[in-house]
Write a protein that binds this DNA or RNA. Structure first.
Length: 255
DNA sequence: AATCCAAGCAACCGCTCTGTT
DNA sequence: AAACAGAGCGGTTGCTTGGAT
């Protein structure tokens, strides 16, 4: 479609990053912020594509990255979120502070997939591998902090598979027929009527690690917050606590 | 000790989405 | 409304490393 390339490939390095490149990138971002990725390489004196710089920063150089092994709790949370969201790695990563989408995606493909298979669970459908073919049941997942009036609006989308379409205007209620009745089986403690908000910037993230909440299920509370609020889904119909105001005030800046 | 193979991870590629003109 | 540019996402690739033979 005649799109101009994101960079001039002939004069860009590829492959593994050198320490010097890392240092240049870190120094530049510390001094100027993340800004415009397209122009960053030139400004920083890097012979790299802007996309490459962005990826390197986000996946490896960012100071708030946790790195290291995933804990058992993180494993379980990833599984539950994946059963709800599918391969929406960035959304899943948004609920795991210090983890990147790429990291989670790799971890899923290398560890969790196998783990689920060994449990006799299909990692794609979260359904028992030998399980029967139950008819799809309707599941509601909502994205974004839905305003009451919006919730009333009929802007629900009905789809067929478990992969809800991307959020629209960050406020969209998705109603889809899940082919995954097994979600309830795999996670009987999860309230499937969830509203998932898009991941926001680090400052506006929900409180870290909603692990206890995930473990305790939809009804569980951590620090007085219900699971919906901990997932960054204030004002949802699933909210069972009274922290909506606190929450929305701190996480209103959307991306 | 050398070779082979599989697993893990970093990085790339192509596509889609979103904002701007 | 259409075209364009930039950013972000998900799938895939390929290199590195560690264990097995």
């Amino acid at each position: 479609m005649g799109r101009s390339p994101c960079c001039e490939k002939a004069h860009t390095n590829k492959g593994a990053w050198t320490k010097e490149e890392d240092e240049r990138l870190i120094a530049y971002i510390k001094a100027h912020g993340e800004g415009c990725w397209r122009s960053l390489p030139k400004a920083a004196g890097l012979l790299r594509c802007g996309k490459s710089c962005r990826l390197r920063w986000i996946n490896y150089l960012r100071p708030d990255l946790k790195r290291g092994n995933f804990t058992h709790d993180e494993d379980e949370l990833i599984i539950k979120l994946h059963s709800l969201l599918g391969n929406k790695w960035s959304l899943i990563a948004g609920r795991l502070p210090g983890r990147t989408d790429n990291e989670i995606k790799n971890y899923w493909n290398t560890h969790i997939r196998r783990k689920l298979l060994s449990r006799g669970i299909d990692p794609t459908t979260h359904r028992p591998i030998n399980g029967g073919a139950e008819p799809p049941k309707e599941t509601t997942i909502s994205f974004g902090a839905v305003k009451p009036e919006d919730a009333e609006n009929n802007n629900s989308i009905t789809g067929k598979d478990s992969e809800p379409k991307k959020e629209e205007n960050k406020e969209e209620t998705l109603l889809f027929k899940s082919e995954e009745p097994q979600v309830a089986e795999a996670c009987p403690d999860l309230n499937l009527e969830l509203r998932i908000s898009p991941p926001s910037s680090q400052e506006t993230r929900p409180p870290p690690l909603p692990l206890e909440a995930a473990k305790s299920g939809g009804g569980g509370r951590v620090n007085g917050l219900c699971f919906a609020c901990i997932l960054g889904i204030p004002n949802s119909i699933d909210c069972t606590c009274n922290n909506n105001e606190d929450y929305s005030s701190g996480s209103s800046s959307s991306n």
